[in-house]
Amino acid sequence: MIKLLSYKNISQNAELYFDQFRLRHREFIDRQDYDVKAHDGMEFDEYDTLAAQYLVYSEDGRTALGASRLTPVVMGCMLKDHFPHLVDDHAILSQADVWEGTRFCIDSRLPPEQRRHICQSLALAYVEAGLELDATHIIGLMPTLILRSVFERSGIALDRLGAPHAIGAHSKIQAASIQVCVEQITRAAATSGLSKVMAHTPI
């Protein structure tokens, strides 16, 4: 099950909240050699603020097996600050009802079928969380292959925000937008069989 964590419910989910940062350290620094900040085995950056909401997949309520971060773009936007060349129309980068999804990761030590299930669950959770947060769109950047294999194959429709570019070790990184609407959930349920992947936790 996926919980939506924020500063408002850390006290009830402290172990899970901090374990997602350890998962990020393993997946982004240890495995992919990202040059980002770390402290005490946890990875973080300038977008881990009080405005951030965290989607965390766990089976025991304490161990993070998958995670992603959501932030309102008006409170800081990675695409706007670091990768504006990936977006053709910059208007979407300053809209109050648009959120950005970043730091999408799955525990790479898990078996393939479990990783696939967590990927699909997080993809659907983007839309479920977006509805809770009154967002109209969630934007982000990923390798084009991941956009297709994680989101579109899970039934989540995407709009590309610009052409793909080579960034770092990836030959094709692309920005995309997810419209937040009930129809996305309906399509995802028909495609992957998943529905209501998020636990109801106070925002």
Results as ranks from 00 to 15, higher is better:
A175T: 01
H200T: 13
D35H: 10
I138A: 08
I10V: 15
L93D: 06
I146S: 01
T71G: 01
L131M: 12
L23G: 14
Y57W: 13
P112H: 08
D159M: 12
Q95P: 06
S6Y: 07
V150E: 00
G41L: 07
D81A: 07
R187L: 10
G41S: 09
D48P: 08
I29P: 10
T186V: 12
S192H: 03
G101H: 01
D35W: 02
M78A: 03
Q53P: 03
S149Y: 06
A91G: 11
A199D: 14
G140D: 01
V36W: 11
H90D: 06
V36K: 09
T191W: 03
S58N: 13
E27Y: 10
G168F: 02
G140Y: 01
M198P: 04
T71D: 04
F28Y: 15
L133S: 04
R31Y: 08
M75N: 14
C181V: 08
T71R: 06
V182M: 11
D45F: 07
T102H: 00
R109T: 14
D81K: 00
L16A: 08
G130I: 03
L16K: 09
R148M: 02
A67D: 09
A188F: 04
D88L: 12
Q114W: 07
I139H: 05
H200C: 13
M1T: 14
L4E: 00
M198K: 00
I106L: 07
E113R: 14
G101W: 02
D45A: 09
K196S: 14
Q32Y: 10
G193L: 04
M142Q: 00
I92T: 02
D107Y: 11
A125I: 03
E43W: 10
H200W: 11
Q32S: 12
F83Q: 02
S11C: 11
R26G: 11
R62H: 12
S11V: 12
H39S: 13
V180P: 05
M142T: 04
Q12A: 15
A52E: 10
E152K: 06
L141T: 04
I185Y: 00
L110P: 11
L145V: 00
Y54A: 08
S192L: 05
T63Y: 10
H137Y: 13
I10F: 09
D89P: 07
E46S: 13
F18Y: 15
V36Y: 12
L50K: 15
G61M: 10
E128H: 05
D35E: 15
I178E: 01
S121H: 04
I139G: 02
K172Q: 12
R187C: 11
Y57I: 00
H165T: 04
S192R: 06
Q184N: 06
P84A: 06
D97R: 11
F18P: 01
V87N: 09
P164D: 02
V98G: 01
P111K: 02
L141K: 04
E183L: 05
I10T: 14
F104P: 05
L50G: 15
F83C: 03
Y126V: 02
A163N: 11
T136K: 14
G155I: 05
R187K: 15
L158H: 01
R24T: 11
